[in-house]
Simulated scan of single mutants.
Amino acid sequence: MSEQLAEVDRLRASLLSKPRVSDPPLPDGGEITGEDVLFRIEHMVQSVVGSLSAGEAPALVIRNRALWSNIRFDDSIGLQTVSDSTVTTVRSDCSSSVARFALTLKLLSVIYKLVQSNTYATKRDIYYNDTQLFGSQRTVDLIVDDISCMLRVPRRGLHVLATSKGFITGDLCYTEEDGSRVNCESSSTPILVSSNVCGIKNIVSSAKFILIVEKDATFQRLLDDDFCTKLAPCIMITGKGVPDVNSRLMVRKLWDSLLIPVFALVDADPHGIEIMCIYKYGSLSMSFEAHNLTVPAVMWLGLLPSDIERLNVPKDALIPFTKTDHSKLNSLQKRPYITSQPLWEKEMELMLKWKLKAEIQSLTSIAPDFLTRVYLPNKLHYGGWI
C-alpha cells in the first residue's frame, strides 16, 4: 500500500491547482494531444485521491482484453472492443491485485512525466530503470497496454515506444521524425522497422505492392534472390512470426500512404493463417487500437492449402497435424471474421480434411528457386497485380 500512496503523492501536486471535474469527456478516435493525455491521467488520479479522502479503498477499472465476448467485428476496420465490455476491477485492498494497482500508478506517473516533458522511452527502458520493482518485461508490457486501453490513447500518445523486431526492404524511402533519411533499397541487408512509425514522413516509393512475409528465413531468401527488383518494384516486410505493434503500424502506414495492394505470404497452417489475420483484422488484446493497426485490404497470396494439391507438393514435405493445430484451427473457424471469407473457409476445410500442413519452404522440394521463379510470379501475374 505504501508504493501506491507514494505514487498518488507524486501526482497530487500537479492536481491541486486544477479545478475538480467529475466526469470529463473522453472521446474516442481523432487526434489526441499531450494535454488530452495529461487530462485523462489527472482525472484517473483524482478518482484515486477522492477515494482515499473518503476513507475508501481506491480501485481501477480495466476493460478485459482477453474475452471474445468483448469484441465486435467490422469488416472495414477489424476487431473492435465494444463499449460495454466486461471489466476487471484492480483493487488496492485485495492481496491478489494490490501489486498490479501500485505498478499501474507507478507507470501512470512515468507516462505523465514523459508526456509533460515531451520525451519518449521504450518499454524496455522503463523496465530496466527499475527491474526489481517490475519483476519482468512482460509486466511492463501488459500494464502499458492496460493504461492505453483505459485512457483510450494509442501507445505512442503515451510517449512509450516498443523495441522493433521486424525488418523491411524494397522500393521505399522515408524520413524519420528526427530528420534522418532512410533508404530501404540501398543495401543488401534489410532495415529494422522504426520504433517510431507514427513519426515517419515524406514516404517515397514506386512499389506496385507490399508483401508481408511470415518468416524471417523466407524473407531472407526472397532478399537474397533480389525479389523486390526482379519481378516488379515492391516492398517486403516481416514481423518474424507473430508481428509486433511496430510492424503492424508500418504496414498500415504504407497502405494509407501508397494505396497499393497488400499481400500475405504465410505457411499453410493454422498459425500462419492467424498471423495473417492479425495484420488484416487485428488481435484480441489490441482490439481497442484496431483503427491504427489493421489493414482490411490484406489478401492471402499463399501458401494456400489448395496449392499443395494443385502443385503436387511431395508428401514427405508435408507435416501431420498436432492437437495444437486442431485446437488453433477450430478457434479460427469460430472467429467473427471468418464468415466474411468463404474462400478462406474452404481452404481451412481442406486443411482439416487432410490433417496436413505445409511450410512455405516445402516449395523447395519442387525446385530450389520455385518460390521466386515460379510460384510468386504466377500468383501475381494471374491476379493481374503486375
Rank of each mutant, 00 (worst) to 15 (best):
T33I: 02
G34T: 02
G34P: 08
G34S: 13
D36F: 03
D36K: 06
V37W: 10
L38K: 03
L38I: 05
L38N: 02
F39L: 08
R40M: 11
I41P: 03
I41W: 02
E42Y: 05
E42D: 15
M44T: 15
M44E: 15
Q46T: 14
S47Y: 06
V48H: 04
V48C: 09
V49I: 15
G50K: 01
G50P: 00
G50H: 03
S51E: 08
S51A: 14
L52G: 05
A54I: 04
G55Q: 08
E56P: 01
E56T: 03
A59S: 14
A59N: 04
L60E: 03
L60I: 07
I62F: 11
N64A: 13
A66N: 12
W68V: 10
S69D: 14
I71V: 15
I71E: 08
D74E: 14
D74M: 09
D74P: 11
S76K: 09
Q80G: 02
T81V: 13
V82S: 10
V82F: 05
S83H: 11
S83F: 03
D84H: 08
V87K: 12
T88W: 04
T88N: 15
T88C: 12
V90C: 01
V90H: 02
D93C: 11
D93K: 02
C94I: 10
C94L: 12
S96W: 04
S96E: 14
V98L: 05
V98I: 14
V98F: 07
A99W: 15
R100V: 04
R100K: 12
R100I: 04
F101E: 12
F101I: 09
L103C: 08
L103A: 06
L103M: 13
L105N: 00
K106Y: 01
S109C: 15
V110C: 00
I111V: 14
I111F: 02
I111N: 00
K113N: 06
K113L: 04
L114M: 02
L114K: 00
Q116I: 05
Q116D: 14
S117Y: 07
S117R: 13
N118L: 11
N118M: 10
T119D: 15
T119E: 15
Y120E: 12
A121E: 10
T122L: 00
K123A: 11
K123S: 10
K123I: 10
R124L: 08
R124S: 09
D125H: 08
D125Y: 01
N129K: 03
Q132H: 03
L133P: 00
G135V: 01
S136D: 08
Q137R: 10
Q137F: 04
R138P: 00
T139Q: 11
V140S: 03
V140H: 02
D141Q: 06
L142N: 12
L142M: 12
I143N: 00
D145Y: 08
D146V: 07
D146C: 05
D146Y: 07
I147L: 13
S148C: 07
M150L: 15
L151Q: 09
L151A: 11
R152C: 04
V153G: 06
V153D: 04
V153E: 05
V153Y: 05
